[in-house]
Amino acid sequence: MNTIVIDRKTVTDKSVNTTEQQKKIAVKDLNLFYGEKQALFDVSIDIKEKEVTALIGPSGCGKSTFLRTLNRMNDLIDGVKINGKMVIDGEDIYQTNDVIKLRTKVGMVFQKPNLFPMSIYDNVAYGPRMQGIKNKAELNKIVEESLRGAAIWDEVKDRLKSSALGLSGGQQQRVCIARAIAMKPEVILMDEPTSALDPISTLKVEELIASMKKEYTIVIVTHNMQQAARVSDKTAFFLNGEIIEFDETNKIFSMPSDQRTEDYVTGRFG
Protein backbone atom coordinates (compact mmCIF):
# COMPACT_ATOMS: atom_id res chain seq x y z
CA MET A 1 0.00 0.00 0.00
CA ASN A 2 2.68 2.47 1.05
CA THR A 3 5.02 1.61 -1.72
CA ILE A 4 2.31 2.12 -4.28
CA VAL A 5 1.64 5.58 -2.94
CA ILE A 6 5.31 6.45 -3.00
CA ASP A 7 5.72 5.11 -6.50
CA ARG A 8 2.88 7.20 -7.77
CA LYS A 9 4.34 10.20 -6.03
CA THR A 10 7.75 9.92 -7.55
CA VAL A 11 6.14 9.73 -10.93
CA THR A 12 4.07 12.86 -10.41
CA ASP A 13 6.99 14.62 -8.72
CA LYS A 14 8.97 14.67 -11.87
CA SER A 15 6.26 16.27 -13.91
CA VAL A 16 5.87 18.99 -11.33
CA ASN A 17 9.59 19.56 -10.90
CA THR A 18 10.06 20.16 -14.54
CA THR A 19 7.56 23.02 -14.45
CA GLU A 20 8.24 25.15 -11.40
CA GLN A 21 9.92 24.56 -8.08
CA GLN A 22 8.03 27.09 -5.98
CA LYS A 23 4.64 25.81 -6.91
CA LYS A 24 2.75 24.51 -3.86
CA ILE A 25 -0.60 23.70 -5.40
CA ALA A 26 -1.17 22.95 -9.06
CA VAL A 27 -4.71 22.56 -10.30
CA LYS A 28 -5.40 21.50 -13.83
CA ASP A 29 -8.80 21.23 -15.54
CA LEU A 30 -10.75 20.60 -12.38
CA ASN A 31 -14.47 19.93 -12.84
CA LEU A 32 -16.89 19.43 -10.01
CA PHE A 33 -20.47 18.20 -10.13
CA TYR A 34 -23.19 18.20 -7.50
CA GLY A 35 -25.13 15.26 -8.87
CA GLU A 36 -26.02 16.37 -12.40
CA LYS A 37 -25.27 20.03 -11.84
CA GLN A 38 -21.78 21.21 -12.71
CA ALA A 39 -20.40 23.73 -10.23
CA LEU A 40 -16.79 24.12 -11.40
CA PHE A 41 -15.64 24.22 -15.03
CA ASP A 42 -12.08 23.41 -16.07
CA VAL A 43 -10.49 25.31 -13.21
CA SER A 44 -6.71 25.60 -13.58
CA ILE A 45 -4.58 27.58 -11.18
CA ASP A 46 -1.08 27.43 -9.71
CA ILE A 47 -0.71 28.63 -6.16
CA LYS A 48 2.76 29.57 -4.95
CA GLU A 49 4.30 28.76 -1.66
CA LYS A 50 4.09 31.34 1.15
CA GLU A 51 1.83 33.67 -0.70
CA VAL A 52 -1.68 34.79 0.04
CA THR A 53 -4.03 33.98 -2.79
CA ALA A 54 -7.49 35.55 -2.66
CA LEU A 55 -10.50 34.07 -4.41
CA ILE A 56 -13.16 36.63 -5.22
CA GLY A 57 -16.42 36.64 -7.13
CA PRO A 58 -20.15 37.03 -6.67
CA SER A 59 -21.92 34.57 -4.37
CA GLY A 60 -22.59 31.21 -5.95
CA CYS A 61 -19.65 31.61 -8.33
CA GLY A 62 -17.90 28.50 -6.99
CA LYS A 63 -15.08 30.12 -5.03
CA SER A 64 -16.00 28.42 -1.76
CA THR A 65 -16.67 25.14 -3.54
CA PHE A 66 -13.23 25.36 -5.08
CA LEU A 67 -11.61 26.16 -1.74
CA ARG A 68 -13.22 23.08 -0.23
CA THR A 69 -11.80 20.83 -2.95
CA LEU A 70 -8.32 21.72 -1.68
CA ASN A 71 -8.75 19.70 1.53
CA ARG A 72 -11.47 17.46 0.16
CA MET A 73 -14.19 18.82 2.41
CA ASN A 74 -16.59 18.33 -0.47
CA ASP A 75 -16.22 14.61 0.16
CA LEU A 76 -18.67 15.06 3.02
CA ILE A 77 -21.48 15.91 0.61
CA ASP A 78 -23.33 13.05 -1.03
CA GLY A 79 -23.22 12.91 -4.79
CA VAL A 80 -20.18 15.12 -5.43
CA LYS A 81 -18.05 14.08 -8.41
CA ILE A 82 -14.70 15.55 -9.21
CA ASN A 83 -12.36 15.11 -12.13
CA GLY A 84 -9.17 16.77 -13.19
CA LYS A 85 -5.86 17.20 -11.42
CA MET A 86 -5.29 18.68 -8.00
CA VAL A 87 -1.64 18.38 -7.06
CA ILE A 88 -0.25 19.53 -3.72
CA ASP A 89 3.49 19.06 -3.15
CA GLY A 90 3.64 16.75 -6.10
CA GLU A 91 0.86 14.48 -4.93
CA ASP A 92 -2.49 14.30 -6.64
CA ILE A 93 -4.72 14.52 -3.58
CA TYR A 94 -7.59 12.78 -5.30
CA GLN A 95 -5.36 9.82 -6.15
CA THR A 96 -3.64 9.12 -2.84
CA ASN A 97 -6.82 8.87 -0.76
CA ASP A 98 -5.12 9.69 2.53
CA VAL A 99 -7.47 12.48 3.57
CA ILE A 100 -6.19 12.48 7.14
CA LYS A 101 -2.69 13.30 5.95
CA LEU A 102 -4.05 15.83 3.48
CA ARG A 103 -6.08 17.64 6.12
CA THR A 104 -3.22 17.75 8.61
CA LYS A 105 -1.18 19.44 5.92
CA VAL A 106 -3.97 21.68 4.61
CA GLY A 107 -5.75 23.38 7.48
CA MET A 108 -9.01 25.27 7.26
CA VAL A 109 -10.73 28.23 8.91
CA PHE A 110 -14.44 28.56 8.36
CA GLN A 111 -16.87 31.36 7.70
CA LYS A 112 -18.19 31.43 11.23
CA PRO A 113 -16.03 30.62 14.22
CA ASN A 114 -16.78 26.96 14.94
CA LEU A 115 -14.96 26.21 18.16
CA PHE A 116 -16.09 23.10 19.98
CA PRO A 117 -17.91 23.35 23.30
CA MET A 118 -14.69 22.75 25.23
CA SER A 119 -12.07 24.91 26.92
CA ILE A 120 -9.77 27.11 24.85
CA TYR A 121 -6.88 24.80 25.64
CA ASP A 122 -8.76 21.67 24.61
CA ASN A 123 -9.85 23.28 21.36
CA VAL A 124 -6.30 24.09 20.32
CA ALA A 125 -4.93 20.78 21.59
CA TYR A 126 -7.74 18.85 19.89
CA GLY A 127 -6.01 18.21 16.57
CA PRO A 128 -2.60 17.23 18.00
CA ARG A 129 -4.28 14.95 20.53
CA MET A 130 -6.20 13.22 17.78
CA GLN A 131 -2.86 12.65 16.08
CA GLY A 132 -1.77 10.75 19.17
CA ILE A 133 0.26 13.38 21.01
CA LYS A 134 -0.30 12.77 24.71
CA ASN A 135 2.76 14.34 26.33
CA LYS A 136 1.54 17.19 28.52
CA ALA A 137 4.60 19.38 28.09
CA GLU A 138 4.54 18.96 24.36
CA LEU A 139 0.87 19.83 24.20
CA ASN A 140 1.39 22.88 26.38
CA LYS A 141 4.11 24.02 24.02
CA ILE A 142 1.97 23.48 20.93
CA VAL A 143 -0.98 25.33 22.47
CA GLU A 144 1.12 28.31 23.48
CA GLU A 145 2.94 28.53 20.17
CA SER A 146 -0.28 28.23 18.22
CA LEU A 147 -2.09 30.86 20.25
CA ARG A 148 0.92 33.16 19.91
CA GLY A 149 0.98 32.47 16.21
CA ALA A 150 -2.63 33.54 16.01
CA ALA A 151 -1.91 36.70 18.02
CA ILE A 152 -4.38 35.77 20.74
CA TRP A 153 -2.08 34.40 23.45
CA ASP A 154 -2.00 37.55 25.55
CA GLU A 155 -5.77 37.79 25.55
CA VAL A 156 -6.46 34.23 26.63
CA LYS A 157 -3.39 32.99 28.50
CA ASP A 158 -5.10 33.44 31.88
CA ARG A 159 -8.28 31.64 30.92
CA LEU A 160 -7.08 28.67 28.89
CA LYS A 161 -9.24 26.29 30.89
CA SER A 162 -12.44 28.26 30.52
CA SER A 163 -14.99 27.78 27.78
CA ALA A 164 -13.95 28.82 24.31
CA LEU A 165 -17.51 29.83 23.59
CA GLY A 166 -17.26 32.62 26.16
CA LEU A 167 -14.88 34.58 23.89
CA SER A 168 -15.98 37.31 21.53
CA GLY A 169 -16.53 36.41 17.87
CA GLY A 170 -13.24 37.92 16.77
CA GLN A 171 -11.32 36.15 19.52
CA GLN A 172 -13.05 32.89 18.67
CA GLN A 173 -12.03 33.21 15.04
CA ARG A 174 -8.41 33.76 16.02
CA VAL A 175 -8.55 30.71 18.30
CA CYS A 176 -9.91 28.84 15.27
CA ILE A 177 -6.82 29.96 13.39
CA ALA A 178 -4.67 28.82 16.34
CA ARG A 179 -6.44 25.48 16.23
CA ALA A 180 -5.55 25.15 12.57
CA ILE A 181 -1.93 26.25 13.19
CA ALA A 182 -1.58 23.67 15.96
CA MET A 183 -1.55 20.96 13.29
CA LYS A 184 1.56 22.58 11.80
CA PRO A 185 -0.06 22.75 8.37
CA GLU A 186 1.67 24.04 5.29
CA VAL A 187 -1.39 25.45 3.64
CA ILE A 188 -4.27 27.25 5.39
CA LEU A 189 -7.61 27.66 3.66
CA MET A 190 -9.87 30.46 4.85
CA ASP A 191 -13.49 30.60 3.84
CA GLU A 192 -14.66 34.21 4.31
CA PRO A 193 -13.05 34.19 7.77
CA THR A 194 -14.18 37.72 8.70
CA SER A 195 -17.71 37.71 7.33
CA ALA A 196 -19.18 37.23 10.81
CA LEU A 197 -16.88 39.76 12.53
CA ASP A 198 -17.06 43.44 13.39
CA PRO A 199 -14.63 45.86 11.65
CA ILE A 200 -12.09 45.94 14.50
CA SER A 201 -11.92 42.18 14.79
CA THR A 202 -11.72 41.98 11.02
CA LEU A 203 -8.71 44.27 11.04
CA LYS A 204 -6.96 42.11 13.64
CA VAL A 205 -7.56 38.96 11.62
CA GLU A 206 -6.30 40.68 8.47
CA GLU A 207 -3.10 41.76 10.23
CA LEU A 208 -2.71 38.22 11.42
CA ILE A 209 -3.09 36.85 7.90
CA ALA A 210 -0.45 39.23 6.62
CA SER A 211 2.00 38.09 9.31
CA MET A 212 1.24 34.40 8.74
CA LYS A 213 2.35 34.61 5.13
CA LYS A 214 5.96 34.08 6.21
CA GLU A 215 5.22 30.56 7.26
CA TYR A 216 2.14 29.39 5.44
CA THR A 217 0.63 29.26 2.02
CA ILE A 218 -2.75 30.89 2.43
CA VAL A 219 -5.81 30.67 0.19
CA ILE A 220 -8.62 32.97 1.25
CA VAL A 221 -12.14 33.31 -0.07
CA THR A 222 -13.60 36.75 0.46
CA HIS A 223 -16.55 38.74 -0.74
CA ASN A 224 -14.88 41.90 0.48
CA MET A 225 -12.75 43.38 -2.26
CA GLN A 226 -10.91 45.81 -0.03
CA GLN A 227 -9.89 42.83 2.04
CA ALA A 228 -8.60 40.97 -0.98
CA ALA A 229 -6.65 44.06 -1.98
CA ARG A 230 -5.24 44.49 1.51
CA VAL A 231 -4.11 40.99 2.32
CA SER A 232 -3.40 39.08 -0.86
CA ASP A 233 -0.51 38.78 -3.28
CA LYS A 234 -2.51 37.14 -6.03
CA THR A 235 -6.20 37.25 -6.78
CA ALA A 236 -8.38 34.91 -8.77
CA PHE A 237 -11.77 36.13 -10.00
CA PHE A 238 -14.43 33.44 -10.22
CA LEU A 239 -17.63 33.72 -12.21
CA ASN A 240 -20.18 30.96 -12.77
CA GLY A 241 -17.77 28.23 -11.78
CA GLU A 242 -14.90 29.41 -13.95
CA ILE A 243 -11.74 31.36 -13.24
CA ILE A 244 -12.06 34.46 -15.40
CA GLU A 245 -8.78 36.00 -14.42
CA PHE A 246 -5.90 35.16 -12.12
CA ASP A 247 -3.05 37.59 -11.59
CA GLU A 248 -1.15 39.83 -9.21
CA THR A 249 -3.65 41.48 -6.88
CA ASN A 250 -2.49 44.98 -7.93
CA LYS A 251 -3.15 44.18 -11.50
CA ILE A 252 -6.59 42.67 -10.88
CA PHE A 253 -7.71 45.78 -9.06
CA SER A 254 -5.97 48.44 -11.15
CA MET A 255 -6.00 47.17 -14.70
CA PRO A 256 -7.77 43.88 -15.14
CA SER A 257 -7.55 42.42 -18.60
CA ASP A 258 -11.06 41.03 -18.68
CA GLN A 259 -14.10 43.33 -18.87
CA ARG A 260 -16.07 41.12 -16.46
CA THR A 261 -13.36 41.37 -13.83
CA GLU A 262 -13.36 45.11 -14.18
CA ASP A 263 -17.13 45.25 -13.85
CA TYR A 264 -16.93 43.21 -10.69
CA VAL A 265 -14.07 44.95 -8.94
CA THR A 266 -15.52 48.35 -9.72
CA GLY A 267 -18.76 47.23 -8.15
CA ARG A 268 -20.93 47.15 -11.26
CA PHE A 269 -22.38 43.79 -10.23
CA GLY A 270 -22.00 41.22 -7.54
Partner: peptide, 15 residues
Protein backbone atom coordinates in the same frame (compact mmCIF):
# COMPACT_ATOMS: atom_id res chain seq x y z
CA UNK B 1 -25.39 19.19 16.74
CA UNK B 2 -24.24 21.95 14.38
CA UNK B 3 -22.77 20.81 11.09
CA UNK B 4 -19.91 23.23 11.66
CA UNK B 5 -18.64 21.07 14.55
CA UNK B 6 -18.30 18.12 12.23
CA UNK B 7 -16.56 20.16 9.56
CA UNK B 8 -14.29 21.85 12.06
CA UNK B 9 -13.16 18.54 13.45
CA UNK B 10 -12.75 16.72 10.16
CA UNK B 11 -10.80 19.64 8.69
CA UNK B 12 -8.21 19.03 11.41
CA UNK B 13 -7.43 15.64 9.93
CA UNK B 14 -9.50 13.59 12.36
CA UNK B 15 -11.50 10.55 11.41
Amino acid sequence: VPRTYREGSLALGTT
